[in-house]
């Protein structure tokens, strides 16, 4: 039988991969993918914990909301990346370091 622990381990592994991608990749699109991956581990957790609320299915409900929101944020993020590209002619986050000023 697949227990809660298995879900949590999978989501933990996925989270770590997502985090690694966010920290290491030289491409803003890949970073965005990493972020989405981390978000999805959270959604996975919500669904996994949903077994404790079978009456209302709160976990699944929140997962749906989160997916919708993730789509929205992804759109916003893509728009930001487009703008960054327009301005800097690159989407390598190492080269966009104006935040330090």
């Amino acid at each position: 039988m697949i227990s809660l622990t298995h879900y949590l381990v999978v989501s933990g592994i996925l989270f770590c991969i997502g985090l690694y991608v966010v920290l290491v990749k030289r491409n803003a699109i890949q970073i965005l993918i990493g972020i989405e991956m981390m978000l999805n581990t959270a959604i996975l957790n919500l669904v996994a914990f949903g077994r404790y609320d079978k009456l209302n299915n709160g976990g699944q409900m929140f997962a749906l909301f989160a997916i919708v929101l993730a789509a929205a944020t992804t759109a916003v993020a893509l728009a930001i990346i487009l703008n960054v590209y327009r301005r800097y002619k690159t989407i390598d986050p190492d080269k966009v370091d104006q935040l330090k000023d």
Binding site: L19, V22, L23, V24, I31, P93, D94, V96, D97, Q98, L99, K100, D101
Partner: peptide, 14 residues
Amino acid sequence: FQTGRVQYYLLSML
């Protein structure tokens, strides 16, 4: 820490 690169900030937070 203030390198201006987002990934470093994230690394620091981590």
